[in-house]
Structure formats: C-alpha cells, structure tokens
C-alpha cells in the first residue's frame, strides 16, 4: 500500500510539475537573454522611398506589398526590413550578401553589379518640381541642367549628383519629406520626384512639375547571387511576379496604392 501510495504521489507531483514549470520558470528561473537564440529570418532590405516603400504607407507601400505578395505565392520565406539609409541597404547587399534588396538606382559598383540580379517591378516617371511662390514666373526646363546653375537642388544621400555639381548647382541632402518641407519653405529651389510623389505630398498645391519628364526610374528587387538561396529565389520571384501580373493581383495592388494602373 505504502509503495503504491508513494508512486501515486510521485505521479501526481510529476504531473503538477509539468503544469507548473512553464509558468514558474518564467518568474523564478534563470534570466535567459533573447539574444542567445539565433534569428533565422532572411531579410530583404528596402530603402525608405515614400510613397513606394515606407512604413508610413499601407502595407509599407506598393513595392513592399507586391514583393510580399510574390514571396507568399512562391513560398519564399523572407521579411522586408525598411531602412532609413540607402547606404545601409547597399552595405547589407555588398558586405553581408543578404538575400535581396528593394529600391531603385542602387549605383552599385562593379563587384556588386556582378552579383546583382535586378527584377524590375514598377517603372515611374520623374519630374523636376519647384515652388510656385518662389518662382511666380515659373521655371523652364528644356533638358539642360545649366539653367539651374547657382540654384539649390535637394536630393537623397547616396544619389549620384556629379552632373548637378558640374552644372554649378548647389546640392542639399535630406529625406524626401524634409526636402519637400524645405521646398515649401523656399529653402530649396528644385528637386526631382516622381509623379506619385507630387500627387501624394502636394498638400498646399504649391509644387509645380516641369515638363517634360526627366526620365524613368525602375523600382524593383535585386537578388544576390552570392546568397545561398539567391539564384533560386530570383528564379522563383520572376515566375511569381509573372503569375500575379497574369491573375490581376499586380494591377489590383498598384491601383490600391497609387490609384491608377
């Protein structure tokens, strides 16, 4: 009887312990730093570029939304991390061989170009804009930068500005929103933005776009063929992108974010 009783006690104590350990260990157990656990997530680093890639946009912007849709469709496991510095995005691609990066005009050097597989997602037109209150008579753009000589031009750090400097233009750096504020405050004379940027941020209706368009930029994803899954993921991504274009999802996402096809 005694033996059976002891066994029962041990049995119930064991059961009780199983139930208790998980909660008690949280309160009284050793403090386990989360950093001891390895993070296995693959990251795709994106450069902050509103309204296309930005934490301030729904689903982090149209490009992030499309990329996520394709990743999901093709079972590619990766999270998008948007960074506020283009140079950091380039660092991760160049030095840490991350799976992929998203953005535009990466200005990769030769070594990075050889490992980059660029998949364009969206092509958008760019225009010069100015503040109509600063230039009530308007500015006239005929394709020659020299007409802006001596003026203040706003752009992002990491963009190639050599042609502007050669034309005698004073370059000021900043983030898109701060540059637009400076343009509003007439601390900048002109900057280069996409049509969607004007539509989204021209709240006071003071920004005027100069025709014709300066050109087109391609927003897209760059897979890294030095990453163990880079080549395979790029292949799957291309196929997935084609599929969502064919089934209408791509068009729907563009419309959702930008209001047009």
């Amino acid at each position: 009887m005694f033996t059976l009783g002891l066994k029962k006690i041990i049995y119930w104590l064991t059961l009780l312990n199983v139930g208790l350990i998980s909660t008690q260990s949280v309160a009284t157990g050793p403090r386990v730093a989360p950093s001891l656990f390895t993070d296995n997530t693959e990251y795709i680093y994106g450069m902050d570029f509103p309204p296309y890639i930005s934490h301030d946009e729904i689903e982090n912007g149209v490009i992030a939304d499309i990329v996520n849709a394709v990743l999901k469709k093709e079972n590619i496991s990766a999270d998008i991390m948007i960074l506020p510095s283009k140079n950091m995005v380039k660092y991760y691609f160049s030095e840490e061989n991350v799976l992929a990066v998203i953005g535009y005009n990466f200005d990769f050097n030769k070594a990075n170009k050889t490992k980059a597989d660029f998949i364009p997602i969206l092509s958008v037109d760019e225009f010069y804009i100015y503040n109509s209150q600063r230039f009530p008579e308007g500015l006239h753009w005929e394709g020659n930068l020299s007409i802006f000589s001596g003026m203040h031009y706003g752009t992002y750090k990491g963009n190639n500005v050599s042609t502007y400097k050669e034309a005698g233009i004073i370059v000021k750096y900043g983030r898109l929103k701060s540059l637009l504020t400076q343009l509003e405050l007439q601390k900048l004379d002109f900057m280069r933005v996409t049509a969607e940027t004007i539509n989204r941020f021209n709240e006071n209706n003071t920004m005027v776009r100069l025709e014709p368009s300066i050109g087109t930029i391609l927003l897209g994803v760059v897979f890294n063929n030095q990453h163990p899954k880079g080549i395979e993921s790029a292949k799957k991504f291309k196929a997935g992108l084609q599929k969502i274009k064919e089934n209408g999802l791509f068009e729907a996402l563009v419309k959702k974010h930008l209001g047009h096809e």
Binding site: P84, S85, K86, M88, Y156, G158, S178, T181
Partner: peptide, 16 residues
C-alpha cells in the same frame, strides 16, 4: 548614417 536618415540632434526642431 544619421545624416542619411535625416536624424538631427533636435536643437533645431524638425517638422516631424
């Protein structure tokens, strides 16, 4: 990197 990201020391109050 701070400059790239538009971080300032906040002694001039940014519009954000």
């Amino acid at each position: 990197f701070y400059r790239d990201a538009g971080i300032t020391d906040g002694f001039c109050r940014p519009d954000e």
